[in-house]
Design a binder for these strands. Structure first.
Lengths: 107, 107
DNA sequence: GCGATCGATAACTCTCTGGCTATTGGAAAC
DNA sequence: GTTTCCAATAGCCAGAGAGTTATCGATCGC
Protein backbone atom coordinates (compact mmCIF):
# COMPACT_ATOMS: atom_id res chain seq x y z
CA UNK A 1 0.00 0.00 0.00
CA UNK A 2 3.02 2.27 0.46
CA UNK A 3 3.19 4.67 -2.46
CA UNK A 4 6.40 4.90 -4.49
CA UNK A 5 6.86 8.60 -3.70
CA UNK A 6 6.94 7.88 0.05
CA UNK A 7 10.48 6.53 0.03
CA UNK A 8 11.64 9.27 -2.35
CA UNK A 9 10.54 12.10 -0.06
CA UNK A 10 12.13 10.42 2.95
CA UNK A 11 15.36 9.72 1.08
CA UNK A 12 15.73 13.17 -0.45
CA UNK A 13 14.81 15.01 2.76
CA UNK A 14 18.38 14.76 4.05
CA UNK A 15 20.60 17.55 2.63
CA UNK A 16 23.79 15.47 2.60
CA UNK A 17 22.08 12.66 0.76
CA UNK A 18 20.48 15.05 -1.70
CA UNK A 19 23.88 16.67 -2.29
CA UNK A 20 25.37 13.27 -3.16
CA UNK A 21 22.52 12.59 -5.58
CA UNK A 22 22.88 16.06 -7.16
CA UNK A 23 26.59 15.50 -7.62
CA UNK A 24 25.95 12.18 -9.36
CA UNK A 25 23.43 13.90 -11.63
CA UNK A 26 25.85 16.74 -12.45
CA UNK A 27 29.08 14.85 -12.85
CA UNK A 28 27.95 11.28 -13.50
CA UNK A 29 29.78 8.17 -12.33
CA UNK A 30 31.73 8.54 -9.06
CA UNK A 31 33.62 6.25 -6.70
CA UNK A 32 32.83 6.21 -2.99
CA UNK A 33 36.23 7.76 -2.30
CA UNK A 34 35.56 10.66 -4.69
CA UNK A 35 32.17 11.30 -3.12
CA UNK A 36 33.63 11.10 0.40
CA UNK A 37 36.32 13.65 -0.49
CA UNK A 38 33.65 16.30 -1.13
CA UNK A 39 30.97 15.29 1.33
CA UNK A 40 32.68 16.56 4.47
CA UNK A 41 31.71 13.42 6.40
CA UNK A 42 33.34 10.03 7.02
CA UNK A 43 33.45 7.26 4.44
CA UNK A 44 31.10 4.95 6.39
CA UNK A 45 28.56 7.78 6.55
CA UNK A 46 28.76 8.20 2.77
CA UNK A 47 28.38 4.44 2.27
CA UNK A 48 25.30 4.45 4.46
CA UNK A 49 23.76 7.30 2.46
CA UNK A 50 24.53 5.49 -0.78
CA UNK A 51 22.81 2.42 0.62
CA UNK A 52 19.67 4.44 1.34
CA UNK A 53 19.77 6.05 -2.11
CA UNK A 54 20.17 2.63 -3.71
CA UNK A 55 17.26 1.25 -1.68
CA UNK A 56 15.12 4.08 -3.06
CA UNK A 57 16.24 3.22 -6.59
CA UNK A 58 17.87 6.63 -7.02
CA UNK A 59 21.36 5.23 -7.70
CA UNK A 60 23.01 2.16 -9.22
CA UNK A 61 26.35 0.69 -8.19
CA UNK A 62 28.92 -0.91 -10.44
CA UNK A 63 31.90 -2.87 -9.11
CA UNK A 64 35.24 -2.46 -10.82
CA UNK A 65 38.07 -4.20 -9.05
CA UNK A 66 38.22 -2.88 -5.52
CA UNK A 67 36.45 0.34 -6.51
CA UNK A 68 32.69 0.79 -6.49
CA UNK A 69 31.20 3.35 -8.84
CA UNK A 70 27.79 4.91 -8.22
CA UNK A 71 25.59 6.67 -10.77
CA UNK A 72 22.23 8.43 -10.62
CA UNK A 73 19.05 6.76 -11.86
CA UNK A 74 17.14 9.76 -13.14
CA UNK A 75 14.02 7.72 -13.94
CA UNK A 76 13.53 7.07 -10.24
CA UNK A 77 12.31 10.64 -9.84
CA UNK A 78 9.18 9.90 -11.89
CA UNK A 79 6.88 9.15 -8.91
CA UNK A 80 7.83 12.52 -7.44
CA UNK A 81 6.86 14.31 -10.63
CA UNK A 82 3.65 12.26 -10.77
CA UNK A 83 2.79 13.25 -7.23
CA UNK A 84 3.19 16.99 -7.84
CA UNK A 85 1.15 16.68 -11.03
CA UNK A 86 -1.53 14.86 -9.08
CA UNK A 87 -1.66 17.65 -6.50
CA UNK A 88 -1.97 20.19 -9.30
CA UNK A 89 -4.68 18.02 -10.83
CA UNK A 90 -6.74 17.99 -7.64
CA UNK A 91 -6.44 21.75 -7.51
CA UNK A 92 -7.52 22.13 -11.11
CA UNK A 93 -10.50 19.79 -10.82
CA UNK A 94 -11.76 21.64 -7.75
CA UNK A 95 -11.49 24.82 -9.77
CA UNK A 96 -13.38 23.21 -12.66
CA UNK A 97 -16.12 22.09 -10.28
CA UNK A 98 -16.44 25.65 -9.05
CA UNK A 99 -16.72 26.86 -12.63
CA UNK A 100 -19.41 24.30 -13.35
CA UNK A 101 -21.29 25.37 -10.25
CA UNK A 102 -21.14 29.01 -11.24
CA UNK A 103 -22.25 28.08 -14.75
CA UNK A 104 -25.25 26.17 -13.41
CA UNK A 105 -26.12 29.04 -11.08
CA UNK A 106 -25.96 31.38 -14.05
CA UNK A 107 -28.62 29.49 -15.97
CA UNK B 1 22.07 30.27 1.03
CA UNK B 2 19.48 27.64 1.96
CA UNK B 3 17.62 26.67 -1.19
CA UNK B 4 13.83 26.93 -1.26
CA UNK B 5 13.39 23.22 -1.99
CA UNK B 6 15.23 22.29 1.22
CA UNK B 7 12.29 23.10 3.51
CA UNK B 8 9.82 21.49 1.09
CA UNK B 9 11.57 18.11 1.10
CA UNK B 10 11.87 18.19 4.89
CA UNK B 11 8.24 19.21 5.34
CA UNK B 12 6.78 16.69 2.90
CA UNK B 13 8.94 13.80 4.11
CA UNK B 14 6.50 13.08 6.96
CA UNK B 15 3.58 10.90 5.77
CA UNK B 16 1.04 12.39 8.19
CA UNK B 17 1.94 15.91 7.13
CA UNK B 18 1.85 14.98 3.46
CA UNK B 19 -1.57 13.36 3.96
CA UNK B 20 -2.89 16.61 5.45
CA UNK B 21 -1.55 18.57 2.51
CA UNK B 22 -3.00 16.08 0.02
CA UNK B 23 -6.38 16.33 1.69
CA UNK B 24 -6.29 20.13 1.46
CA UNK B 25 -5.41 19.85 -2.24
CA UNK B 26 -8.21 17.36 -2.90
CA UNK B 27 -10.99 18.83 -0.85
CA UNK B 28 -9.93 22.44 -0.37
CA UNK B 29 -10.61 24.53 2.73
CA UNK B 30 -10.76 22.56 6.03
CA UNK B 31 -11.00 23.41 9.72
CA UNK B 32 -8.50 21.97 12.19
CA UNK B 33 -11.29 19.89 13.73
CA UNK B 34 -12.20 18.38 10.34
CA UNK B 35 -8.56 17.54 9.63
CA UNK B 36 -8.11 16.07 13.11
CA UNK B 37 -11.14 13.81 12.64
CA UNK B 38 -9.45 12.03 9.73
CA UNK B 39 -5.80 12.23 10.74
CA UNK B 40 -5.92 9.57 13.46
CA UNK B 41 -3.80 11.72 15.79
CA UNK B 42 -4.53 14.30 18.48
CA UNK B 43 -5.56 17.87 17.72
CA UNK B 44 -2.31 19.38 19.05
CA UNK B 45 -0.34 17.09 16.76
CA UNK B 46 -2.40 18.26 13.79
CA UNK B 47 -1.89 21.90 14.80
CA UNK B 48 1.85 21.35 14.99
CA UNK B 49 1.89 19.81 11.51
CA UNK B 50 -0.16 22.71 10.15
CA UNK B 51 2.36 25.09 11.70
CA UNK B 52 5.21 23.35 9.88
CA UNK B 53 3.27 23.32 6.59
CA UNK B 54 2.52 27.03 7.01
CA UNK B 55 6.18 27.77 7.74
CA UNK B 56 7.05 26.06 4.45
CA UNK B 57 4.47 28.17 2.64
CA UNK B 58 2.45 25.10 1.68
CA UNK B 59 -0.74 26.22 3.45
CA UNK B 60 -2.58 29.43 4.39
CA UNK B 61 -4.81 29.92 7.44
CA UNK B 62 -7.97 31.98 7.65
CA UNK B 63 -9.69 32.78 10.94
CA UNK B 64 -13.48 32.72 11.07
CA UNK B 65 -14.91 33.18 14.55
CA UNK B 66 -13.48 30.49 16.76
CA UNK B 67 -12.70 28.26 13.78
CA UNK B 68 -9.48 28.32 11.78
CA UNK B 69 -9.61 27.20 8.16
CA UNK B 70 -6.54 25.97 6.31
CA UNK B 71 -6.06 25.72 2.54
CA UNK B 72 -3.27 24.49 0.28
CA UNK B 73 -0.93 26.89 -1.51
CA UNK B 74 -0.24 24.97 -4.70
CA UNK B 75 2.32 27.50 -5.96
CA UNK B 76 4.60 26.58 -3.08
CA UNK B 77 5.45 23.34 -4.90
CA UNK B 78 7.24 25.25 -7.68
CA UNK B 79 10.77 24.92 -6.19
CA UNK B 80 10.27 21.16 -6.04
CA UNK B 81 9.35 21.01 -9.72
CA UNK B 82 12.30 23.29 -10.52
CA UNK B 83 14.67 21.00 -8.64
CA UNK B 84 13.56 17.85 -10.49
CA UNK B 85 13.83 19.72 -13.80
CA UNK B 86 17.32 20.85 -12.84
CA UNK B 87 18.37 17.25 -12.13
CA UNK B 88 16.96 16.20 -15.49
CA UNK B 89 18.84 19.11 -17.06
CA UNK B 90 22.17 18.02 -15.58
CA UNK B 91 21.54 14.57 -16.94
CA UNK B 92 20.70 15.86 -20.40
CA UNK B 93 23.70 18.18 -20.62
CA UNK B 94 26.06 15.36 -19.66
CA UNK B 95 24.49 13.34 -22.42
CA UNK B 96 24.98 16.22 -24.85
CA UNK B 97 28.64 16.52 -23.85
CA UNK B 98 29.09 12.85 -24.53
CA UNK B 99 27.54 13.30 -27.97
CA UNK B 100 29.88 16.21 -28.68
CA UNK B 101 32.84 14.12 -27.61
CA UNK B 102 31.84 11.24 -29.83
CA UNK B 103 31.32 13.67 -32.70
CA UNK B 104 34.78 15.15 -32.23
CA UNK B 105 36.30 11.67 -32.02
CA UNK B 106 34.56 10.82 -35.24
CA UNK B 107 36.26 13.59 -37.15
C1' DG C 1 52.77 -13.65 -0.02
C1' DC C 2 52.35 -9.08 2.26
C1' DG C 3 51.12 -4.60 3.16
C1' DA C 4 48.04 -1.08 1.53
C1' DT C 5 43.75 0.63 -0.05
C1' DC C 6 38.66 0.59 -1.00
C1' DG C 7 34.22 0.10 0.64
C1' DA C 8 30.76 -2.17 3.73
C1' DT C 9 29.31 -3.50 8.32
C1' DA C 10 28.95 -3.25 13.42
C1' DA C 11 28.26 -0.94 17.53
C1' DC C 12 27.53 3.11 19.76
C1' DT C 13 26.18 8.15 20.71
C1' DC C 14 23.51 12.16 20.31
C1' DT C 15 20.23 15.04 18.38
C1' DC C 16 15.95 15.87 16.29
C1' DT C 17 11.16 15.23 15.87
C1' DG C 18 6.51 13.32 15.98
C1' DG C 19 3.52 11.77 19.31
C1' DC C 20 1.14 12.45 23.79
C1' DT C 21 -1.37 15.07 27.94
C1' DA C 22 -2.33 19.28 30.19
C1' DT C 23 -3.24 23.91 29.88
C1' DT C 24 -4.32 28.44 28.05
C1' DG C 25 -6.63 32.05 25.18
C1' DG C 26 -10.59 33.46 22.63
C1' DA C 27 -15.00 33.30 20.68
C1' DA C 28 -19.59 31.56 20.73
C1' DA C 29 -23.77 29.88 23.16
C1' DC C 30 -26.71 30.03 26.83
C1' DG D 1 -21.20 36.02 33.39
C1' DT D 2 -20.55 31.28 33.01
C1' DT D 3 -19.96 27.41 30.42
C1' DT D 4 -18.61 25.25 26.15
C1' DC D 5 -16.00 24.67 22.34
C1' DC D 6 -11.95 25.44 18.97
C1' DA D 7 -7.21 25.87 18.20
C1' DA D 8 -2.54 26.94 19.82
C1' DT D 9 1.14 26.43 23.20
C1' DA D 10 4.02 24.12 26.79
C1' DG D 11 6.30 20.34 28.48
C1' DC D 12 7.49 15.77 28.24
C1' DC D 13 8.88 11.11 26.18
C1' DA D 14 10.26 7.57 22.98
C1' DG D 15 11.86 6.24 18.52
C1' DA D 16 14.37 7.29 14.38
C1' DG D 17 18.33 8.44 12.09
C1' DA D 18 22.73 10.78 10.95
C1' DG D 19 27.12 10.95 12.63
C1' DT D 20 31.24 8.78 14.77
C1' DT D 21 35.23 5.02 15.46
C1' DA D 22 36.62 0.33 14.92
C1' DT D 23 36.80 -3.59 12.13
C1' DC D 24 36.49 -6.84 8.31
C1' DG D 25 36.63 -8.74 3.34
C1' DA D 26 38.32 -8.16 -0.83
C1' DT D 27 41.45 -6.59 -4.32
C1' DC D 28 45.47 -4.35 -6.02
C1' DG D 29 50.71 -3.15 -6.11
C1' DC D 30 54.99 -4.60 -4.87
Amino acid sequence: MSQPHEILFKTLADPTRRAIFERLCRDGDQTVAALTARAGISQPAVSKHLGVLKQAGLVRDRHEGRNTHYSAELGALAPLIDWTNQMAGFWQSRFDNLEDLLKRMDQ
